[in-house]
Design a protein around this nucleic acid. Sequence first.
RNA 1: GGAGGGGUGCCAGAGCGGUUGAAUGGGCCGGUCUCGAAAACCGGUAUACCCGCAAGGGUAUCGAGGGUUCAAAUCCCUCCCCCUCCGCCA
Length: 425
Amino acid sequence: MLDLKFIREHPEAVRRAIEQKGVKLDLEALLDLDRKVLELRRKTEELLAERNKNAKQTGQAGPEERGPLIERGKALGKEISERERELRGLEAGLRQLLLLVPQIPAPNSPIGPDDSHNVETRRHGEIPKFAFTPLDHVALLEKNNWAELERIAKVSGARSYALKGDLVLYEMALLRFAMDQIVEAGFTPISTPSYAREFAFVGTGHFPTGMDQVYQLEGTDLLLTGTSEVTANALHAEEILSQTQLPLCYAGLSTCFRSEAGSAGKDTRGLMRVHQFNKVEQYVLCPADPAESARWFDRLLANSEAILQALELPYRVLEVCTGDMGPGKVRQVDLECWVPSEGRYRETHSCSMLYDWQARRTNLRYRDASGKVQYAHTLNNTAIATPRILVMLLENHQQADGSVYVPKALQKYLGKQLLSPSLSE
RNA sequence: GGAGGGGUGCCAGAGCGGUUGAAUGGGCCGGUCUCGAAAACCGGUAUACCCGCAAGGGUAUCGAGGGUUCAAAUCCCUCCCCCUCCGCCA
C-alpha cells in the first residue's frame, strides 16, 4: 500500500508504476473516490461535532429545556447514521482500490511486461559437463528408490511426493544447514504456523490478487500459507515498535502450501513444482530508510548466494523486470540454479525489497530516534526451499553410476559423502 | 468437548450512561535543586484523519464489529483473544 497523500500528490509516478507493472487499476477512479470520501467525511464530522455539542448541552440542561434538545439530537442521529453508512461504503471501496496500487519500482529496475525482460547480471559456477548421459531427477529418484511419486499420487493427488531413505535425511540436512547459515548471519530462527487469517495474506500483498494460489481450510477462517513471509510480516501487525528493536531479522521455518492453480501442465513431473514444501525464509524489518533497505537487500542476497555456493550449484542472478516482480516490490532479484535435464536455469530464490508497502498494509510501525512514528521497511529472500533444490542437487551432482555426491558443506550434516540408495522397495 | 473468569493508555490499575482521551501509581522525557548523582518537587508523555501558514480547532479510537440512547469505556448482541478447572490427546 502506498501513502494516500503520496498518491494524491504524485499521480503521475503512480500511473507510471501501474503501467510498468501491468496492474489493472483505474487511478482516476481511485482519486475520484478519494475526493468523494474526503468531502463526505468532512460533512459527517461536522454533524458529529454538532451531535456531541448537543448531547453535552442536553446533559447540562434543566428538565424543561431538554425536550427540544433531545429532538434536535434525534434528527442529527438519523442524518448521521445515513451519512456514516454511505461513508463506510465509500471507504471500503477506496481501500479495495488502494490495496491494488503497486509500489513504485526502483529507477534502475528493467522495464518490461514479463519474465522475458528480466536481465541476467551475473553467473556463478561451472555448468557440469558429463562424460556420461545424465539422468533427470525423476530417473535418479527411481533408480535409487528415493521417492514415491506414482504411488503417493493415488493417496494425495498430483504434485505430491514422498521422499524416502537418504533423501529425507538430505532434506533435513539442507534445511538445517540453511538455517545455521542464516542464524550465523544474525537472524533469529522462528517456526511459524502454516496457516493464517486472511488479513495476513493481505498484509504481504498475496491478496487480493493471488487468492487462487492459496488453500482454504473449510469451516474455518484460516488459509494455508505459501511462505512464512505471511506470518512473519503479520506477527507485528498493529504494533509500534521502538527503534531500538530494529532491525528484526527472522529466519522463518515453515511448511508451505500452494495450490498451483493456473499452472496445470507445467512441471508436472517430480519435485519441481509441488503443493507442499519446506522453506527457510529470511525476513527483515528495518527502519524506513532506502539506504538501509538497500544494505539489507544486498545482505539477503549474499546470504543466499553463500548457501548456493556451499551447495556447489551453478546459478545465475536475474534482475527482475517491472512486469514480473510483484506489485509491492521496489526491487526483486531472483537466483536461478542450473537444471541439466532442462538445459536451463530455474528459480530457487527470490529476493525482494518492498520499502513500507507491506508495513502499511499490516500497520506495522516504529518510533524513530526523534520520536516520529514511521512505517517500517520489509525485505525477504529464500534461504532454501525443498524439495525443489533437490532437483538441482541430484542432477548436478550425479555420477556415472547414478549415485549422487554430497557437497562438502553438507557432509557433516548428513554424515556421508554419497547418498545411498534406499533398501526397501 | 464441558464449566467459569477476564480483555482500559508504555506497564500496573480505577472508571456513576453525560463536562473521561480517560483517575491514581510506576516508567520514560524535560526542568528546578546539587560540585555531581540520588531523593524531592514541577511540567510533559497515544494513534489516525480533516481544517489551518501557524497557534490551534474538529472527528474517531478503552479487544473487533453491530445495536440501544439526545449522549456509551460504561447497557445489549455477535465474534476474536487471554486465563482457570474438568475431560480427551501428539
